[in-house]
Amino acid sequence: MLRDITIGQYYPVRSPIHGLDPRTKLAGTFIFLISLFVTKSLIGYLIATFALIFLIRISRVPARYITKGLKPVLIILVISVSFNIFLTPGRLLFAIGPLKVTAEGLKTAGFMAIRLIYLVIGSSLMTLTTTPTQLTDALERSLGFLNKVHVPVHEIAMMMAIALRFIPILIEETDKIMKAQMARGADFESGNLIRRAKALVPILVPLFVSAFRRAADLANAMEARCYHGGGGRTKMRPLKYGTSDKRAYAVMLVYFVIMILTGFLKI
């Protein structure tokens, strides 16, 4: 299940979307997410759908790769959709026992589902087309103003990048430790809650020890390669806005204005 999360994974191909400045993509994702909430009309969702399909096509990321990212949020989706279907008051369509299904409920649930799905697709499209380093660079640059209020932006960005690198390694390690303890007769599946929580100790302790050891190793390796914080650092590929970024911003602006306008429509 953890392996199915596509957020944070990069899909290495060349495409106009991959080529955009990560800040543009960050802004674009943000605008897209907001647009999903300002529009309340069918036409708005249609426009958003076309925009999304268009972006996926030019990003050259296979569609099934993107939909794979939806799997982990499926549970959240089912729960929130059923809440909306059954708990929205309005014109009664039919009832299954005490559960009443209303027309309004169906409508909000439908929009809710679309919003959530588009939200996940939109953000995974960004992470699939942007390397984690670019992404953290973009965050570091866009949030640079926070440095003035003593927020260690560079350090936070570096931590994020390292976390992204080590998450798959630690997942694999957890799997291995679990199997090794099972080989020593550990049982993670039976017993009450307290017993099960206690059964996690033989996994968590080795995992933490290993994480600390890796952290110490990594700190050494980074220092050995002249890392001394963000000061005086340069970039192999410094973030630079190009013509395509300007065009992208223009498109985003037009898209956003249209989406706001559709918010006033009653279709």
Binding site: E173, K176, I177, K179, A180, Q181, M182, A183, R184, G185, D187, V201, P202, V205, P206, V209, S210
Partner: peptide, 20 residues
């Protein structure tokens, strides 16, 4: 299978990483 695992002992690579 739980009983089997006590009869067939398996020592993983770098087993010291499981001490806790």
């Amino acid at each position: 299978l739980k009983a089997l695992r006590t009869k067939i002992g398996l020592v993983f690579q770098y087993p010291e990483y499981q001490l806790f």
